[in-house]
Design a protein around this nucleic acid. Structure first.
Lengths: 365, 365
DNA sequence: CGACATACGTGAATTGGTTACATAAGTAGA
DNA sequence: TCTACTTATGTAACCAATTCACGTATGTCG
């Protein structure tokens, strides 16, 4: 993209191109007149803009609609298949990759297991293989991938390097974005998993209508992601939301007590059956979670608090006590909802991050 | 301001007007050629833009510079006196009002005492009188005030109503912005005092180069203000930063222990002399403060943590223990600095808020 | 097959901006 | 005081992007 100097007369064209492209991406397929109405531009201008976009490969003419009154209008569609993005979660014991087109439609998923004790290079290799398999399996040429984003637990700085990880062996210091860049030879981004999960909820999940969001990832490891104004808020060093490291909050050991001598699923099931000890353990976990969550909520005063992560799918057994403790702790409790996505959230958020990058840097939106 | 429809050809002119006005405001006085160089516009365009701005009253031609080579250039200056804004702190026992011109230059200060037990209407009346006196005293006609902003302790919602105040009697529910609107018959805004103090630090204080800022107001009442991306982050209900209400943090009672049977100044002085009990009290206060501050820092991961408020002026006696406790609590400690402004910070931040409103709504920047 | 509806195509007019070049109005120095 | 130099201004020609008006094309409906 050329810069937008004031004085550049083609500024107007750029603004109009963006407006048109945005409208067309939302509509999928539209006629000149329709786009004109939406964007407020004249038909002629829309036509000129679409010509340009057609040459750049983002827009294609599709067969006209039949059976309508009057002369059939030429119809144009956004070429969602002009390019692709990959989002991948590099987790403790699973890798989840998603391939999406420029329209944000997820074309293919790919999963792989990885040993939780695996060394960094093994984990990276698994992530690479899974991402490539996802793209290859969908029959998409690797060169057509325009951006990759990876999500992982731990603190990820703004260059995409893991600056601190306490769960994954050898993970601290790994330049995740730098390495992922080589997978497809395109730009790569990396971010914290909870942040990406939050982004996914804002994109297509339960946080669609919220602007400031706190997402709490409940699982063996507890983490939080923050959205401000609908955008990722990683903070100066990518550590925003790391409230759990505060001793008084104690997210680090939250799960340890919960699953002592048992599996998490077992404890939740027992609690559901009414087992006293299991209930107590779940309640304790919920309280720990709620303390951190309330600290985040008080700090940020978000529109919405989303509860997600691996343990979220057990439902009210866990959500109810979290809600109860939150109500006790916060003066003004934010709205609390359960996350929409299961274990796909992080990869989906990564897709959204990659897509945003493409929209900004390549499409110029 | 008219809307910016795409397709509006005058969009260009608007962009250029803004760029020119911004440049001129920064420069104070400049020639056409200089402005052209800065904005990247041609001299002719700048001239046309300045003509328009002149008619609107924001720009005036000033006498040309003498003694320079070549034909003397016409010089233009931003009319900082085209309008004024008022910022006022409505505090527990003081009212501080500041009058500033459109250039952000503070023309006049006015202060008044107010009984800390005063009823809401008395406090409001004192604020009104102080603000009017500030303007009148400077010889500025009241009708030339374009915006007022008020800062006060407690939670202020986005409409400018005090939705919760625990320190000021009868203050909860007061529609501060709504009432202030009548003082000068112009738009009025209201916000939390710590938030405004943070804004002031970002404008002209120690947070000038930071983007995400946490400001902790240390005083009889402890509060915090947050800036994200250099802008106020009040949160959904204006409660962002109210971490102190969390029991585990306990900012509410922080000062009570500090000043038990003594004046704050006395305790700090005693601590400075080495008095064991005073030191312990200060350390305890500092720790309480640091716990909340670290929670905010971990939640937001700001570029900078600013320590301000009434007690900040005692200096290292208090700052040092706060820093020490912070270092213990945070994994990655943000940069910590003392605030630049004393008891003028809140009013100054209010000026900045009012000014931003004017720039956005009236000047169209 | 004609009436109607809707979309397309073209040319003039408008707004905003740029470059080029002649002209004006100062200072510096002989 | 006059001339050279420097810098700003004024004017004209031209370009980019857009809109509006109006005539033309191409379907469906009765």
């Amino acid at each position: 993209m050329t810069e937008l100097r004031p004085g550049d007369a083609s500024l107007l064209r750029k603004v109009n191109t963006q407006a048109t492209l945005r409208a067309l991406r939302r509509e999928g397929v539209a006629t000149l007149t329709q786009l004109g109405r939406i964007t407020g531009l004249s038909r002629q201008t829309v036509e000129a803009v679409l010509d340009e976009l057609g040459e750049r490969g983002y827009v294609r003419e599709v067969p006209p609609d039949e059976g309508a009154m009057g002369r059939p209008a030429r119809r144009f569609g956004f070429r969602a298949d002009a390019g692709y993005v990959v989002g991948v979660e590099v987790g403790g014991d699973t890798i989840v990759a998603a391939l999406a087109d420029l329209g944000g439609e997820v074309i293919a998923w790919e999963r792989a297991e990885v040993d939780s004790d695996a060394a960094a290079h093994e984990r990276l290799d698994a992530a690479r293989r899974t991402s490539l398999a996802c793209v290859d399996g969908a029959g998409v040429a690797r060169t057509r991938v325009w951006a990759v984003a990876a999500g992982t637990s731990g603190i990820v700085d703004r260059t995409g390097r893991v600056s601190l990880s306490i769960t994954l062996p050898g993970w601290t210091g790994v330049d995740l974005a730098g390495l992922a860049r080589r997978w497809f030879g395109c730009t790569a981004l990396a971010a914290n998993d909870a942040n990406l999960a939050a982004l996914a909820e804002h994109w297509r999940g339960s946080a669609r209508h919220a602007s400031d969001v706190v997402y709490v990832m409940m699982g063996r490891r507890v983490g939080a992601g923050i959205l401000i104004g609908g955008r990722l808020h990683p903070g100066r060093g990518g550590a925003a939301g790391e409230i759990g490291t505060l001793r008084q909050v104690g997210w680090e050991d939250a799960a340890r007590e919960l699953v002592k001598d048992a599996s998490a699923a077992g404890v939740f099931e027992a609690a559901l059956r009414g087992d006293r000890d299991a209930r107590r353990r779940v309640d304790r976990y919920a309280e720990t979670l709620a303390i951190g969550a309330s600290a985040l909520a008080l700090a940020i005063d978000p529109d919405l608090l989303v509860l997600g992560g691996g343990y979220a799918r057990v439902g009210d057994v866990l959500l109810e006590p979290v809600r109860r403790h939150l109500a006790e702790l916060c003066v003004s409790v934010p709205e609390v909802v359960a996350s929409t996505f299961g274990d796909e959230g992080v990869a989906l958020g990564a897709v959204r991050l990659a897509l945003s990058h493409v929209e900004r840097e390549i499409l110029g939106l």
